[in-house]
Design a protein around this nucleic acid. Structure first.
Length: 480
RNA sequence: GCCGAGGUGGCAGAAUGGUUAAUGCGACGGACUGCAGAUCCGUUUCCUGGGGGUUCGAUUCCCUCCCUCGGCUCCA
């Protein structure tokens, strides 16, 4: 197991990671509330934790990665009412879209997506423990609230001082609460909404308790990693600590808290509430998963990231091509080498550099998941490969694989180059090859008008043609 | 107001108590090309919010001010 460090939001320091039960690692990441389509901001968080999961597995940890789905809450109920549908069905639909987008993005590391409503017995049980132990109370309306005053550590994660919280617009001054900072863990049923029976009357789970009931069941009273967006620190994660540690009597419930920075659009956080979102599906359709993943992993995960509709993804596409084209070239050469048998060996120095670079990539990432630093190393490698004197043609298959290994690392850990053979020169589109042959004949007889016409026609179909020294090649590009 | 994260080149964004402040995008020049693109080479030389302090040396550590963003019981 490779050692790595991670910034822990609770202690506010970079710490050496030590699992509770090596080599096993439990990781819980707050998923989304699927009341609307996922956007690029969501992707930032989930792509990052996907990289974390890929890295941990590569480094020899046996990771169990859980990402919950809040498939019932006020927003879902409100949205469903607007659309005249059932909130659970609405959540199901948006979650299916989310999964499809994640699949396309290569976010394949999550072991299990528990739905809140599938854990109602666990939630009721945890609420009961909290009530029995005096941490929570039933209000007259049948809701159950957690009494923040009973948990002195409340505020430790966020640095908030309960007394200083502004009882503002959002902090409901609810007559049912004994204290304004108390939060609901069991919501009394409203007619027409989904409800479950409980010792306190019919109702549904509150937001925070769904996570703590699920984590206690799936990961135990204490587990290794908890992740989520930075906007969840308060109140959500603060409340989770209070609930878990009060219910189980064990602390700390979470050994390492990881929070991903926000994606900003024109200086503001991209969010459904603000309405300034770029739907993930649009980004994927226009640019494909590679540029999106590169854009999102090309920064330190904790800080804010500025997203510009006009520039960010087009820039990322250019940058991504610098990495992907060499990767594709290796793939093509390997296909040839496999057929042709033995080939040359690479210069010793280059081979040694490839090997040491892979190690450097791992050590770079092992320093608090420095994806940005790793990407910089990858660019350095493709520059090295492009230097005069580096001849890849004719290398043996093992040699090609060795020189490709840093890029394979990027595929395995960062999830790049996963968009299935978009490589040119394949026989997947014979029509394109026919057109290119016709264009080659036109160029041969000096009929450049015809050659350009064919090129324009292919461009119209989303096929970009490049005349290289070794002949034309094509690739798919987004149209428009 | 309180809590938290930030302010680095045209843009996005790294890093370190010390030789030319990474990387990418963009721009410019060149090679190559019928042209374009891609690729390669070169250039983009005096970029670390303001002011103090510590130090031989600060972008980095300390103080202060200004600004931006996030959270303050919707949020990835």
């Amino acid at each position: 197991m490779r050692r790595f460090t991670v910034y822990d939001s609770r202690t506010r320091e970079v710490r050496l990671f030590a699992p509770l039960h090596p080599p096993r690692v439990g990781m819980y990441v707050c998923g989304l509330t699927p009341y609307a389509a996922a956007h690029v901001g969501h992707a930032r968080t989930f792509v990052f934790f996907d990289v974390v999961a890929r890295a941990l597995r590569r480094w020899g940890y046996r990771l169990f990665y859980v990402q919950n789905v809040t498939n019932l809450d006020d927003k879902l109920i409100a949205r469903a009412a607007e659309e005249g549908t059932d909130p659970l069905a609405l959540a199901e639909r948006h979650f299916a879209e989310y999964r499809a987008a994640m699949e396309e993005l290569g976010v394949t590391s999550v072991n299990y997506y528990p739905f809140a409503t599938d854990y109602v017995p666990e939630i009721v049980a945890q609420v009961r423990v909290l009530v029995d132990r005096g941490f929570a109370y039933r209000a007259p309306d049948g809701s159950v609230y957690f009494s923040v005053a009973k948990f002195p550590k409340f505020g430790e994660l966020s640095g908030q001082n309960v007394a200083a919280l502004r009882p503002g617009a959002r902090l409901e001054l609810d007559a049912d609460k004994r204290s304004p900072e108390d939060f609901v863990i069991w919501k009394a049923a409203t007619p027409g909404e989904p409800a479950w029976e409980s010792p306190w009357g019919p109702g549904r789970p509150g937001w925070h308790v769904e996570d703590t009931a699920i984590t206690e069941r799936l990961l135990g009273a204490r587990y290794d990693l908890h992740g989520g967006g930075i906007d969840l620190i308060f109140p959500h994660h603060e409340a989770e600590i209070a609930l878990s540690e009060s219910a189980t009597g064990e602390a700390p419930s979470v050994n390492y808290w990881m929070h991903g920075g926000a994606l900003r659009l024109a200086g503001e956080k991209m969010s459904k509430s603000l309405g300034n979102v770029l739907p993930l599906s649009e980004a994927l359709e226009a640019f494909g998963p590679g540029p999106v993943r590169l854009f999102l992993t090309n920064v330190q995960y904790r800080g804010p990231l500025e997203f510009d509709r006009e520039r960010s993804l087009p820039e990322a596409r250019e940058a991504y091509d610098r990495l992907r084209l060499p990767y594709d070239r290796f793939s093509a050469l390997l296909a040839q080498a496999g057929a042709a048998g033995a080939g040359r060996e690479p210069p010793e120095e280059l081979a040694a550099q490839a090997t040491s670079l892979v190690e450097r990539l791992d050590t770079t990432l092992a320093a608090d998941f420095d994806t940005r630093g790793a990407v910089a190393l990858l660019f350095g490698w493709v520059r090295r490969l492009a230097e005069p004197g580096v001849e890849l043609d004719g290398l043996s298959a093992p040699a090609l694989e060795l020189l490709r290994s840093p890029l394979d690392w990027a595929r395995e850990v960062l999830g790049l180059f996963a968009e299935g053979g978009a490589a040119s020169g394949s026989d997947e589109a014979p029509g394109i090859e026919v057109a290119l042959a016709a264009r080659a004949r036109a160029r041969g007889r000096g009929d450049f008008a015809e050659a350009d016409r064919i090129r324009a026609e292919l461009a119209h179909r989303g096929i970009e043609v490049e005349d290289r020294s070794d002949g034309p090649r094509w690739r798919r590009v987004p149209v428009g």
